[in-house]
Simulated assay, not measured.
Amino acid sequence: LNMLEYKLKERGKYFVKVGKWYPSSQICHCCGSVKKFDLKDRVYTCDCGYIGDRDHNAAINILTEGLRILQSL
């Protein structure tokens, strides 16, 4: 991570760390509701109608949280 941060800084880019315990896979990226899942559950299904891959949902949440942190700097 140190090398990645250094290389990004060298190119004028930003390196933002999202907290280790941020519940990215439990939050619906569409409506923001939170649901507890087991690791074996690979599909995220929300009451708002969103159905999708759990990892893809988590990636969108991590991006959103990273952008939020970046804006607060």
Rank of each mutant, 00 (worst) to 15 (best):
V16N: 06
K40I: 10
Q26P: 11
G19N: 09
V34C: 10
G66L: 01
C28I: 07
Y22W: 08
K40E: 14
N2Q: 11
G32Q: 04
L63V: 07
E65R: 13
I60C: 01
N57Y: 09
L70Y: 00
A59I: 02
G12R: 06
D38P: 02
S72M: 07
L39D: 02
F15P: 06
N61V: 00
Y14L: 14
N61P: 03
G66D: 00
S33D: 15
Y14D: 15
M3Y: 14
H56I: 14
C46N: 02
S24R: 08
L73E: 07
D41Q: 15
A59E: 01
C30L: 11
D53V: 01
R54C: 03
V43L: 13
I51G: 01
E65F: 01
R54D: 02
V34M: 04
G52D: 03
T45C: 14
D41K: 11
S72I: 03
Y44S: 06
L63A: 04
D38K: 15
N61Q: 00
A58H: 00
C28H: 10
G32F: 08
H56E: 15
I60E: 06
H56G: 03
R42H: 04
L8M: 15
D38W: 08
D55W: 04
D41H: 14
V34A: 02
L39Q: 12
E5D: 12
I60D: 00
E10T: 14
R11L: 09
D53Q: 04
F37T: 11
C46G: 05
F15R: 02
Y44G: 13
T64I: 13
V16A: 03
Y6A: 06
A59D: 02
K17W: 02
C46R: 07
I62G: 00
L39G: 11
T64L: 13
K36E: 12
R42G: 05
I27D: 05
Q26Y: 09
Y44I: 11
C48I: 08
I62T: 00
R11G: 13
V43E: 10
Q71E: 13
D53L: 05
K40F: 04
D53R: 05
C28S: 10
L8A: 13
W21L: 12
K36V: 11
H56W: 14
S72W: 01
K13Y: 10
E5K: 15
T64H: 09
G49K: 02
G49Q: 07
Y22P: 12
N2E: 12
K13E: 09
R68Y: 03
R68A: 01
M3H: 15
Y44L: 15
K20V: 03
Y6R: 12
D47F: 12
R54V: 03
I51L: 09
E5P: 08
F37G: 04
L63M: 04
